[in-house]
Design a protein around this nucleic acid. Structure first.
Lengths: 237, 237
DNA sequence: CCCACGACTTGAACATGTTCAAGTGGTGTG
DNA sequence: CACACCACTTGAACATGTTCAAGTCGTGGG
């Protein structure tokens, strides 16, 4: 917008011949910001505080990040990677669909747990459809794809037998469900967010059962109907 | 919070002995704000502009509304009532579950349609869990109950035969689904939001079918499982 | 070696949501 | 009728995200 460095960030190091110094400052600002967010919360952390703490001018932060919200993207990306790592062990150990899914979901909550108190605060940023932080936005596309890939792994690495059509759609559906869990989690005020844990433990067997049932003859038309709906809705414009 | 008039608003006229003048000013400010929101969008409308246009001081707006976001609650309540009215005709005409539900959902979109462009802008306000504007918040409880009541009407006024347990839970589940539709609608950039219409037309028969199927013996355990999950998750803390 | 370019940095200025101490005026009471 | 109370109103002051014109400085080309 302002002819300034795009927010594409880390996963794209082959852009302009960025001098090393610049990247260093960028990281410094990001680190500082995330630390302050963790320590004081998102709203309570002012851009001035971030700049001061990082030892730069406030305008400098805006040279690297289009807005305060854009700093969250860093958090976003980081957690995505952490989720992948945390899910690793279950995905190599378990072979059945249910425990694989359960493990991945719990791992996701584990990873986010330390940030629950302020995740809620900046969650609103992600909710705005026009925001680049929205999980459905173009800018979030890489992170989204990476997240969906985890669920593809959950499905493909499992022994579950299922309709090929469903198999194709399931990862994205599970990701959507995961978004729902996150939404629930953000609103969850129970101690340790145990309601979210209960939700996961209750929903996984249910999903597992429904996936099994979907092979029943009586349910065949229903399944086709579901898949047709997805198809219809997905078509843009 | 500031010992100031609570935001309970219109549905509670039997509060403090509010002088007529006050209520008048309150309405004036609200009308002006909603008009400007519609004309220029939410973000582009400044509190100063609202005050100026309404011919009052900016501080006066804050005497009646705790924040700019609180002005949205007015919009919220109003649309709730409009939805009820718009749904009336289908609910008296149709007797089958599917068309009743379909009619109510389409009516809801109809009512919101004129505000789509800026609904997205302030949607973020509603998304923040701590915000009184959240559909799950205590403050939204009356509006939420009213909305659920519509869906209770959809179910109870229909000829559909269903498990009594499910019957009890269905209205709230349908409301939750409605929230999902709204979420989809907010993100829907297709012309006239036709994808949302397609979603409704596709999902309603599906729900109808699933409700019917739920009476099948094979699916009995699955239904029980669903209901048990709801029960478990609902328990606070 | 010098210079020009452009990446990088600065901090004051700006826009806007919000607060607050100081009124203003109508009304019920002595 | 005068007074005190209190609902209501005011606008300047404040906090904070964001912008921008003006630097600073290292580096590659002449």
């Amino acid at each position: 917008m302002t002819g300034v460095t795009t927010a594409a960030a880390e996963p794209d190091p082959a852009e302009k011949p960025r001098r090393a110094r610049g990247e260093q400052t960028r990281q410094l600002i990001l680190e500082t910001a995330l630390r302050l967010f963790r320590e004081r919360g998102y709203t309570e952390t002012t851009m001035r505080a971030i700049a001061k703490e990082a030892g730069v001018a406030v305008g400098n932060a805006y040279y690297y990040f289009d807005s305060k919200e854009h700093l969250i993207q860093g958090f976003y990306d980081r957690n995505q990677v952490a989720h992948r790592v945390a899910a690793e062990s279950v995905l190599t150990t378990e072979k059945e669909l249910a425990p694989r899914l359960r493990g991945v979901l719990h791992a996701g909550i584990d990873v986010n747990e330390p940030y629950h108190s302020f995740a809620a605060t900046f969650f609103k940023s992600a909710a705005e459809p026009t925001s680049p932080l929205s999980p459905f936005s173009k800018e979030s596309s890489p992170a989204r794809e990476a997240a969906i890939a985890i669920f593809r792994d959950v499905v493909d690495g499992s022994t579950a037998k299922l309709d090929p059509e469903l198999r194709k759609e399931l990862p994205e559906l599970l990701w959507l469900g995961w978004m729902g869990v996150i939404l629930f989690w953000v609103y969850d005020k129970s101690p340790g967010q145990r309601r979210t844990r209960r939700l996961i433990d209750g929903a996984v067997p249910l999903i597992d059962r429904m996936v099994s049932l979907s092979r029943l003859r009586v349910l065949r038309p229903a399944l086709r109907q579901v898949l047709a709906l997805i198809e219809t809705v997905r078509k843009d414009d």
